[in-house]
Simulated assay, not measured.
Amino acid sequence: MSATEQQLFSGTRPVAAAHAFDVGRLDAYLRGHLPGYSGELQVAQFNGGQSNPTFRLAAGERQYVLRRKPPGVLLPSAHAVDREYRVIRGLAGTDVPVARAHLLCEDPDVIGSMFYVMDYVEGRIFWDPRLPGIAPAERGALYDEMNRVMAALHRVDPQAVGLGGHGKPGRYLERQIDRWTKQYRAAETEPIAAADALIDWLPRHLPAGDETPRIVHGDYRIDNVIFHPTEPRILAVLDWELSTLGDPLVDFAYHCLAWHMAAGEGARGMAGEDLGALGIPTEGAYLQRYLERTGRVATAGGAPAVSAAEWGYYLVFNLFRLVGILQGVLARALQGNASSARALEAGRRARPLAEQAWAMAQRLDGGRVA
């Protein structure tokens, strides 16, 4: 991603016509429900994001962020801003940095769909995992911080923070495959042979066993965290729409897709890059550090609790899951109600990613990923 693309995804713009709402009605609601709210309300829409439209609210000396469900016909179980709100509230006070969540409005009459309001967090959001313009030493520190925060999330006891009901126990992968198959079919815009092959292959090659359910983010990427303005420290993890209870290793594998996707043509990855020169850890080293932080290495230098075959399967599944997400983005773009102006370009990545995932599935052999 170029510096120009970084600028396109960063910052705000006037509210898109497809996502416009009655600002006066929102203002009246906030005055009655948000303690400390005062001043003239000004609304701008964030450029980034493909799913839930997100807005910056400025009123008096305070700034907030509003996340809403998009208008129009939506896929089943998608755009769950109420789940986002509840998990952010639950994680407040843990080692997982989140913005302070203030209120959830489930009444669609206020702005046309459900929404929640949280604090605006000032900091840096990076859209390119290669971190152009950052010194190699700081790149390594930024990645180590992402690793630390994800490990902290996966160490949280869901019951202890009131999130024991945030998902169903057991059969996580099986249920996820079923869910994303349904999501993909519901948003399908054209036949993709590789996606059809994966839909057949994935349930027939499920790895044995299920991790103890933990809170999984579902979309943990470098552009879904806010770093401190000058320090390699995460101030808030964003975009909890896909969070649930599930297998943390599957969640971490999704995070590691950046090592398997090349940059360019709308993709944000770093496959084929000279990671050593960039100061970015290899996927293997990054995975090992996570396993150590979450106690999944039996002894120092011992065998990790994930085989190469399992890890390969988790990567294939997550590529397919991303295909399902992008198919939904494309469907919304074609309907004209997508959150991002570049949604059409993003959605068209579904086919090449499906083909990449199917090629990887075919190469899984004898516990090794070719």
Rank of each mutant, 00 (worst) to 15 (best):
A101W: 01
I134M: 08
A151G: 12
H102K: 06
R130W: 03
M146I: 13
A135D: 15
L153H: 09
D128W: 00
A152V: 07
D95N: 11
P129G: 09
D107F: 03
V110W: 12
R100S: 14
C105L: 03
P132T: 05
D144A: 15
T94P: 03
P108E: 08
G123W: 05
A141K: 05
P132L: 02
M118G: 02
P108C: 09
A152C: 08
P108I: 05
G90Q: 09
R155Y: 06
V98M: 13
E138Q: 11
I111N: 14
V149P: 14
R124I: 00
V87D: 10
V121C: 10
D109G: 09
M150Q: 15
R148N: 15
Y120P: 03
V87R: 03
P136K: 12
P97N: 06
R100A: 13
G133Q: 01
E138T: 01
A101M: 07
A137C: 01
P132K: 04
F115P: 04
G90I: 00
D107T: 01
L91S: 11
P129H: 09
R155V: 04
Y143K: 08
V149A: 12
L153E: 14
D119S: 09
P97V: 00
M146R: 10
R155T: 08
R100C: 00
P129R: 02
P132I: 01
R148V: 10
V117K: 04
R155K: 15
V117Q: 03
D95M: 03
A135V: 02
H154V: 07
P136A: 02
R139D: 12
I134V: 15
P136Q: 12
E106W: 04
P97A: 08
A151L: 10
R148D: 15
I134A: 09
M118S: 10
D128G: 04
A99M: 00
G123M: 03
A135M: 04
M114P: 00
R139G: 14
V98G: 10
H102N: 07
I125C: 11
V121E: 15
L142H: 14
Y143N: 14
A135N: 04
D95F: 02
E106S: 13
V96G: 13
R100H: 11
Y116A: 04
V110Q: 11
A151M: 12
G140V: 01
